[in-house]
Nucleic acid binder design. Sequence first.
DNA 1: TGTACATCAGTGAACGCGCGTTCACTGATGTAC
DNA 2: TGTACATCAGTGAACGCGCGTTCACTGATGTAC
Lengths: 224, 224
Amino acid sequence: MAVKAKAKSAEKTVPQVQLESRTKGERTRDRLLDLTYLSVIRKGFAATSIEELVEEAGITKSGFFYHFKDKQDLARQMIERYADSNVSFIDTLAARARELHDDPLHSFLIFLKLYAEDMNEQVDQHPGCMVAMVTYQDLSFDQKTRDLTFDMVRNWRAKFLTWLHEIALAYPTRKPVDVDAMADTILALTYGGMTLSKAMGDVSVIGRQVLMFRETVRLTFQES
Amino acid sequence: MAVKAKAKSAEKTVPQVQLESRTKGERTRDRLLDLTYLSVIRKGFAATSIEELVEEAGITKSGFFYHFKDKQDLARQMIERYADSNVSFIDTLAARARELHDDPLHSFLIFLKLYAEDMNEQVDQHPGCMVAMVTYQDLSFDQKTRDLTFDMVRNWRAKFLTWLHEIALAYPTRKPVDVDAMADTILALTYGGMTLSKAMGDVSVIGRQVLMFRETVRLTFQES
DNA sequence: TGTACATCAGTGAACGCGCGTTCACTGATGTAC
DNA sequence: TGTACATCAGTGAACGCGCGTTCACTGATGTAC
């Protein structure tokens, strides 16, 4: 979420008031996508009305249809943007962990710690609950949108799997380890933990689950 | 899901055709609740229309309002019935496990095995995804309905917690164990595993996750 | 620098459809005497 | 056993509201010459 704008500013010598590199239309579109995201998480996609979105965005309904072909288009664009930011979130965290330790196991343990901390902070803006939404409301979203979501899940899963294979190679164990299931565990604990933390009103659930899992990973590969 | 009907049959000597002890109205109401459950899981509550439900049930829309005050009433009754069957499902499994072994740890391990097997079988009819639905669509359901759901979660959690405390007492460990987090893990893996298995099209996810967790429990308390 | 045209980012009014809900009515079954 | 009434489990028609979508139009900004 760093400050990114302001790429090429003043070529006309006159230092115009250009604090924002995006056009007016792009800003409106982004605002609509933000509002959609929040509403979908709170109420589901079917209960998210265009009427309501445009009121919050401060434009008219017809203005909405200038930006989006129809409601399905809105869903697709929202999910697309969400998936992108989500993948880059994980990539950043993974890169940081790799940076802090060369060994695959130790960097993975660091990654899990960073992940747990981040999850505790993100409280209500949980990334990933979108996956649950799309999964359980499969008739509200079209095929393209669902595919985007599931690709994201597979993407995450594949990343974890590669990493775990690397670890398994460096740390051979006596008993065989089900690395596939291990890769799934992070995702399962994330999605389930989010549900649970919302239901119980306790934001620390995911973090604690991930830390417990971290201990399991450590013990699995480090049984001296 | 055993055969339950047929309590008091023929008091009038004439052995009337009374294979079903429930009245006609009760049967219709139950059918509506079944259809609602399936539709809510597939599309969410807001996207579940009364029109559609009554068509599938073979009655008219006004017939629906004979059974339910309004749409919220439908949600409440559906969740209520669902929560009841869910609690009794867990209770049955737990009782069976206790029956098979006296020791709290071993019966718990048996319980987890039974639970894992059941989850693999229930495939599409996953109990508990209702929790995710209600949680993520909190504005579609009224307070009463949400409370019912969250009470169910707390109910489950409390049962696991009691059991784990019993185990911790019988099997003291060197390092302190976070039993609260452990109780949450079963729920988190269930809810997250369901999401994941729907997203990946792989029904075995929950079962494998629970079995991995089972191993963790065993190692935690049985480190010789 | 001024004019002509194109694109951007919308507005305002209208549409038809489906949805939840109401209301007066009804045929079948149950119960009282 | 027959009649009177009550309850059960609905029907059929109508309602108003909100929603997604369309369409003709428009003021502001950008670009070409």
